[in-house]
Design a protein around this nucleic acid. Structure first.
Length: 652
DNA sequence: ATTAGGG
DNA sequence: CCCTAAT
């Protein structure tokens, strides 16, 4: 059959398409995708200069107990923690920084008896049940992996609990749907992006020698939160799998800051109040006016922009100076959130919690005391924005996605959230400070009032949401609807608790699920209950104003190079059916290859033709037998000719 | 849903 | 592989 067909080929050679389509440029096209660059930059500006703009002078605060890290940057705290992390967790991967996020991510975190410490540091939590089992000192192992083979991509996650004392080890595998669930969870849970908290450190009456005039923002600090389903009842462990920050903005090779998005145990506290405009960004009139979020949030555009920024950042080390630049470039900012600005000395409790809190953003500001002559720097208020929060992000990603893509996806989500342009609002003791002309002193932001909670809000420029400190109405709305689960229970994602901000009480992380069926999950005795991929319907349970956003972040399909045998099949089918009947080709030769669409086949044929025409030296990937390539050229020429004839015929 | 092409 | 326009 094949030879027969080949004999019919009149000539070998390539013909340009018989029915050339108007080139794209020839067609009138309306740009449907826009890059959200400027707004993001603005947002970053805000982030970077919250203190600077509001307090006139940003300072980089170096905690007294800080030592300089190996890079000479004052990020001691972070570095120190990182070391602690490695030491305490005794990570099985000595160089976690070099994960290949394309193939797999395997985290094995072993904690010794120091686990309790680690637990605190990483906000690892075990449910009460686990504690009852004396697991508080136990090892928590989280192994999440995503593997891809030729045929199918699958991901799995393993969660285990082991007891150093008893030597027992329990682990559960999560695969397929479960894996998907867990992954989704991790993503959703990872909704921690920008966390923020401002801390009023103290009043400095001396020259701010310890300050550098830059604020820093390390968005790189990102951690995936993986909340795996309980093995039974409420046996749940929340594990934090450390990310190789490589893919994240602000990530510095030195891994200076891993604290970034870790959810501090007092996260809830920090999350307080950030509900107000939380959903507005989604419906915000991004670029095309209201409905454009989709376009704006298009995976591609956002991805590219994100990657670009990321690339740039990577090369930018921690020099404060560069950081400023970083801010300007990075579309990574805080959304309309309120972040706490608290007096560092106001509460011992809080302080301790605050210590664990990772500062995605640390800004130390030195502010001239208002009651002193302008220009006088005698009295300054040091402020440190510990972190910003981006409470809610919804991401949907197939289990076949790579870890790397997951990271990118989350990054994109974050980027999109932050890309709309924000402005800063200030809350003092729950009241919004609207008069920009007032001095800090007049407003009450000074050492004399350091016991007053100061809050900053990042709000969409268009949405004049006035986030009362407690994010009143909206917070209530949100609070009422979603299911609130035991913090230790499995959950799909975290939703910033609408805890009352007035009290500023330390509330535990509130795990709220928008999935109604999650409740069933809790009660289900199964170690891990698989939950169908988050569907629009399911998410609809959440009081979203509009369609869930996660749709916008579509995962790029995993690359699956054609094998020689596949090429063979393709060639044979095309020889028989010709080009232009890709559906038939698909049915004929790839009917059982679910991942090969007719578009894929068409594309592959295109590349095959191209490959056949270039020199073997220029070819890449698995070499295709020349014999096949010859057939490709022959078939292509033949069918092109056929098309030409057909065309002429109809034209006449 | 398919096809054709540009990216 | 993705994205779209055009069927």
């Amino acid at each position: 059959m094949v030879s027969e067909t080949r004999l019919d080929y009149g000539f070998s050679g390539y013909q340009v398409p018989v029915f050339p389509r108007a080139s794209r440029s020839a067609r009138v096209r309306v740009p449907s995708r826009k890059k959200c660059g400027n707004n993001q930059k603005h947002a970053f500006e805000i982030l970077a200069s919250v203190a600077g703009e509001l307090l006139q002078e940003s300072r980089y605060f170096v905690p007294p107990d800080c030592k300089e890290d190996q890079h000479g940057t004052p990020e001691i705290t972070v570095v120190k923690e990182q070391e602690d992390e490695r030491q305490l967790l005794n990570c099985s991967h000595s160089d976690q920084e070099t994960y290949d996020d394309k193939t797999s991510l395997q985290h094995q975190i072993h904690a010794s008896n120091k686990f309790s410490n680690v637990q605190d540091q990483f906000n690892l939590k075990s449910s009460s049940t686990l504690k009852n089992l004396d697991l508080s000192k136990n090892v928590c192992l989280a192994d999440q992996s995503a593997k891809v083979d030729d045929e199918t991509a699958s991901s799995s996650a393993t969660v285990g609990i082991s007891s150093p004392e008893s030597g027992e080890f329990f682990e559960g595998q999560v695969e397929d749907a479960r894996a998907e669930f867990s992954i989704i969870q991790s993503v959703d849970t990872a909704t921690l992006p920008v966390t923020g908290g401002l801390e009023m450190l103290e009043t400095d009456h001396k020259s701010p020698a310890f300050f550098c005039s830059e604020s820093k923002l390390d968005a790189s600090l990102f951690k995936d939160w993986i909340t795996l389903g309980p093995s039974r009842h409420s046996n749940t462990i929340e594990t934090v799998s450390r990310d190789d920050d490589e893919n994240f903005i602000g990530c510095t090779q030195a891994g200076t800051t891993l604290k970034a998005f870790r959810l501090p145990s007092d996260l809830a506290d920090q999350r307080v109040n950030n509900l107000s405009a939380s959903r507005h960004w989604r419906v915000s009139p991004n670029l095309n006016g209201g409905t454009s979020f989709k376009n704006d949030g298009r995976r591609r555009s956002s991805f590219h922009s994100g990657r670009t920024n990321y690339t740039r950042q990577r090369s930018q080390r921690i020099s404060p100076f560069k950081k400023r630049k970083f801010f300007n470039q990075c579309p990574f900012t805080a959304p309309d959130r309120v972040f706490q600005f608290e007096d560092k000395f106001s509460s011992a409790d809080k302080r301790s919690n605050g210590d664990k809190c990772n500062a995605a953003v640390e800004v130390a500001s030195s502010v001239a005391s208002p009651h002193l002559p302008p220009g006088s720097r005698d009295r300054n208020v040091k402020l440190r924005i510990k972190s910003f929060k981006v409470p809610e992000l919804f991401v949907e990603i197939p289990t076949t996605a790579t870890v790397g893509s997951l990271k990118r996806t989350v990054m994109e989500a974050v980027t999109t959230v932050l890309g709309d342009g924000l402005h800063v609002g200030i809350l003092l003791q729950g009241k919004k400070v609207r008069d920009d002309s007032k001095t800090l002193f007049q407003t009450g932001i000074s050492q004399d009032h350091k016991h007053h909670h100061l809050g900053f809000t990042l709000e969409p420029k268009h949405t004049q949401t006035k986030p009362s400190q407690c994010s009143g109405e909206q917070g209530l709305t949100r609070r009422g609807t979603p299911l609130t689960l035991d913090p230790g229970a499995s959950s799909a994602f975290l939703v910033p608790p609408a805890t009352d901000c007035a009290s500023g009480a330390e509330s535990d992380l509130q795990v709220v699920s928008s999935l109604s069926n999650i409740s069933a999950d809790v009660a289900n005795p199964q170690p891990l209950v698989s939950i169908p991929a988050i569907s629009v319907e399911a998410l609809a349970v959440v009081p979203f104003h509009h369609r869930p956003v996660h749709r916008e972040f579509v995962q790029r399909r995993i690359r699956r190079p054609f094998s020689v045998s596949e090429v063979e099949a393709l060639v044979q089918a095309v020889e028989k059916l010709g080009t232009g009947r890709w559906r038939d080709v698909k049915l004929r030769a790839f009917d059982n290859a679910k991942h090969r669409t007719y578009v894929d086949l068409k594309d592959k044929w295109k590349t095959l033709v191209h490959t056949a025409r270039i020199s073997p030296q220029q070819r890449r990937g698995e070499p295709v037998p020349q014999e096949l390539l010859d057939r490709v050229l022959a078939a292509h020429a033949y069918w092109s000719q056929q098309q030409a004839r057909q065309h002429n015929k109809s034209a006449v």
